[in-house]
Every structure is written in structure tokens, then in C-alpha cells.
């Protein structure tokens, strides 16, 4: 299983970063969102730390949808999905591989979103870095576990992005709230005394959707019905 997962990760990374248009589309959309939100600030004003964190996570979520869409579209070109399904390794290896590839891509996208948020929305990273980093990783994990599961949902469907967004966003709400809650703390340095609760929630979300991904992916990712 591990070998297939690694093969999928390597192939997806090669195809997206080295041979494809990579993250360009997803990055542009995310940056555009941050920029558009920066327009809501009047002269001399700046968005509250909470709003800035929300914008950051919104950009990440949109970027995520495009990315998983792209990752699963790779198999649709010449129907290689069927080839993957014939592998002796469990099908979940594909889910895991795509989730990890998505995780790495999302983290790299966030390396750009974060400075963009700081610059355009006039924030500084003054909060304690520990919890912020932990929540960043936890939230990304949950987003990728769910994203990798839902990415398989639209297999063989043309209007994938819109479809994914409709289902993805509401399901993601708890995680986005957690990310926003702690993100606000990272931006203004005020501890809202809820951080341990948010960390717990994000961990619970990750656990539930990692398990759901493992259990349900095999149903979704199948030959033609």
C-alpha cells in the first residue's frame, strides 16, 4: 500500500508542479480573493484579525477545491483510473496518496497566501507561533482528508469545481471556524482562551474524516457503474 501511495504522490507532484500549469490557477484565485477583501478596507482602516484569518482560510479552501479537482482529473485523461483500480494494493492507497499530494500543494500555496494576507490586509504575525502552526497543520489535514474523498466524487463529471464547492464548504465549516478562531489569535496576539477547545475540535474533525475517507473511498472510486 505504501509503495502505491508513494508512487501516486510522486506522479501527482511531477505532473502538477513540473509538467502542468501547477498551482497557478489555484494560487491566482486565492490571491484574488485576498485582494478583493482588501478592497473592503477604507483609508487607514484594516480588517479585524478575525476577518483576516477568515479571508486566509477562505482562500485556502477555494485553492483546495481547485487542487483536488485537478489531482483527480489527471486520471480521467486516458482513463488510467481503471489501471489504478487493477492494482493489488488497497484502493485507499490512492486516497492517501492524493491527500498527501494535496497537503503538500496546499502548504506551498499557503506560503504565499500568508504573506499576502499580512501585506494586503495590514496584519502582523504577533501571536504565539505554536498553536497557530499546530492548527494550520490540523486544519490542512482535515481539509485534505475530506477533499481527497470528495475529489473522487465527481469522477467523469465535467462541472467538477462548482459541484465540489457546494458540498465541500458547508461540511468544512467546523474546521474553518477553528482555523479562523486560532488564526485571529496569530494575527493580533490576543489569546481568546478558546484555543485548546479549537485544537480539540480540529483533531476530532481530522480523526472522523480520516476514518471516513479510509472507509468510504473504496465505494466512490470505482469502475464505471
Amino acid at each position: 500500500m505504501l509503495r502505491m501511495t508513494l508512487a501516486v504522490i510522486r506522479k501527482d507532484m511531477t505532473l502538477t508542479l513540473l509538467r502542468g500549469n501547477g498551482l497557478v490557477q489555484a494560487l491566482l484565485l486565492g490571491l484574488l480573493l485576498i485582494f478583493v477583501f482588501s478592497l473592503s478596507q477604507g483609508v487607514g482602516e484594516s480588517l479585524s484579525a478575525r476577518s483576516a484569518a477568515a479571508v486566509f482560510w477562505l482562500s485556502s479552501a477555494f485553492c483546495q477545491i481547485l487542487m483536488f479537482n485537478q489531482l483527480y482529473a489527471l486520471e480521467e485523461v486516458n482513463n488510467s483510473r481503471l489501471g489504478l483500480l487493477l492494482s493489488p494494493a488497497p484502493i485507499q492507497a490512492i486516497w492517501l496518496g492524493k491527500a498527501i499530494a494535496g497537503f503538500v500543494l496546499l502548504l506551498s500555496a499557503q506560503c504565499i497566501f500568508l504573506p499576502a494576507t499580512v501585506i494586503f490586509l495590514g496584519k502582523s504575525l504577533s501571536g504565539p507561533p505554536g498553536p497557530s502552526l499546530v492548527i494550520l497543520l490540523l486544519t490542512d489535514t482535515g481539509m485534505c482528508a475530506l477533499g481527497s474523498l470528495l475529489g473522487a466524487l465527481a469522477q467523469g463529471q465535467t462541472a467538477r469545481e462548482a459541484l465540489l464547492g457546494i458540498v465541500f464548504f458547508p461540511l468544512l465549516t467546523p474546521l474553518l471556524l477553528a482555523g479562523t478562531g486560532i488564526g485571529a489569535q496569530a494575527f493580533d496576539g490576543i489569546d481568546p482562551d478558546g484555543s485548546s477547545a479549537w485544537l480539540g475540535l480540529a483533531s476530532a474533525f481530522d480523526a472522523i474524516f480520516l476514518a471516513a475517507g479510509l472507509l468510504l473511498f473504496a465505494f466512490l472510486y470505482a469502475g464505471d457503474e
Binding site: L146, L149, L153, V167, T173, P174, L177, L201, A212
Partner: peptide, 20 residues
């Protein structure tokens, strides 16, 4: 599949709204 994960989300949404 969506029907299953949607319901798994209910308690998480509730708890998050509460903490929030």
C-alpha cells in the same frame, strides 16, 4: 457517501458553533 459524511458532520458543526 455524502449522506454518511453529512451526518458525521452534525456533531462537529454543533460543537464548533458552541465554542465559537
Amino acid at each position: 457517501v455524502v449522506g454518511v459524511i453529512a451526518f458525521l458532520d452534525v456533531p462537529l458543526v454543533f460543537i464548533s458553533a458552541r465554542i465559537w
